[in-house]
Design a protein around this nucleic acid. Sequence first.
DNA 1: TGACATATGGAATGAAAATTCCATATTGAC
DNA 2: GTCAATATGGAATTTTCATTCCATATGTCA
Lengths: 283, 283
Amino acid sequence: MAATDTLPAPPEDFDQLRAAILERKASLPKRLTQVAAYALDNPDEIAFRTAASIAGAAKVQPSTLVRFAQQFGFEGFSSLQLLFRARLRQRTSSYDERLRLIEQDSPAVSESMGILNGFVNAGHRSLDTLSKAVDPDVFEQAVQLFAHAETIFLIAKRRSYPISSYMAYAFGKLRVKCIAVGTAAGIDDDVLALAGPRDAAFAVSFSPYASESAAQARAMAARGVPVVSLTDSAFSPLAECSKIWFEVVEADHAGFRSLSASMAFAMALTVSVAEKRRRDAGR
Amino acid sequence: MAATDTLPAPPEDFDQLRAAILERKASLPKRLTQVAAYALDNPDEIAFRTAASIAGAAKVQPSTLVRFAQQFGFEGFSSLQLLFRARLRQRTSSYDERLRLIEQDSPAVSESMGILNGFVNAGHRSLDTLSKAVDPDVFEQAVQLFAHAETIFLIAKRRSYPISSYMAYAFGKLRVKCIAVGTAAGIDDDVLALAGPRDAAFAVSFSPYASESAAQARAMAARGVPVVSLTDSAFSPLAECSKIWFEVVEADHAGFRSLSASMAFAMALTVSVAEKRRRDAGR
DNA sequence: TGACATATGGAATGAAAATTCCATATTGAC
DNA sequence: GTCAATATGGAATTTTCATTCCATATGTCA
């Protein structure tokens, strides 16, 4: 008996399981077929609900679910359920799958190339979440705000600094007055002191938040300068002192976070603002 | 007591809960704030995992999770968790649909949002070409070169400057000696004059090539400093004076080129070099 | 500084849910 | 039609997990 129900190979992901179910569906006993059909038709239910309630919905006994799972090499229903949950998570990014394919294709590639692929993958994943994370109306508000601002002050340190340096470059080319701080030491606060209510500030900071950035943003806000910020958590110190804020979470490879999403966001903001100004000027 | 912790209105969906958390986060005690931050930053984890493991990840006790839930009017953690699960279901069901909307540059969304999507797309396309464009062996050579270099000099201006400023930041964190030029005016050449054959330089420049970058790279090469470069054409002035060079073409939106591929490349190079050094030091 | 209120950690408890087990039913072979 | 093998239902068991409770710590106001 031990030979028949303890198959040596439990599927490792949902696709493998799905294939296995389809293959053996015809040769399964009645109740197990019922379970198979239910599982493939309602994978989300399997992921979330309890064995008892799933059993009720599929018109079988809880023990049948366990037997079903064991039939496919799992220890019990719970371990099968994990696959259904993993599927739900991965659904958001199909890029991991692509990465797996790449690695399978050429497993002999050097470690460095693996790192490169990892960052490419992280970039894709980050970009994927960006469009979903940004509320169109709020984005529009931010564009409006900057389009009508006299001078745009860019606040960013450390890891976020590339973002603001790109924006400073692009705004410069597009003839939008802007000043980036965080470049040299010391004088930042003096520069920021120039800002008034008719200007606007854009602050970027990701965890662990550079304390100066937060302090500077707060100071600006206190003086009536509208602050828009880009950060990675609603709990960022930037969020609380900003008139408008955006939450963008970058995916990472080996603990090093991508910058793709933030960069794309910065580009879009920059170009949108310039475009809006051009329009308004033309009227 | 019953009046304070049994708020009459438990939120009915995730958005309400989110709003409630944000509203009250400032007045919450320390551990509950911790939970709030974790919950909003990692909603998927809350949906799937068990109270104990979530508590572990958020560095609190399981009981704190329960208290947190009760604080917001739920009977216990489990009922709060239901909202997170419901959210995940709704999201996955509408995911494909939303993706389609984004991909067909739908005119329904605002112009600014169209621009954002354009840059997201450009980022994806750039990343797609990157892995294919980079020759693993050449990449490995570059990593070796920098791993054995004494000091790494980073040369980049204008649009490429964000790349080098990121690398300078990351190398700094990883304890790899490096110096970025192009930051302030004038002194660049003096700094570069410090470089010798045991150092190495990394130059980044895209069309239209900043003439100073090319000149600096050439000067370095002439003095025997090995130069690695990242550029967008085999005819780039950088290519001819570099020992190793990589050609990466960024996709663009409305004439504005993405930086995603170059960034990913820079990250991979940085991390690979640091990793190699760490290995070599360990021997 | 002391007293009170609130917050926190951690073990004890109790509930819920998965799994096992066994008696019974069904199927298929001879 | 009988026997054996397999499948099934349902109760019993065990495990897992959320919750509660209490002792201790931390902070607050007088």
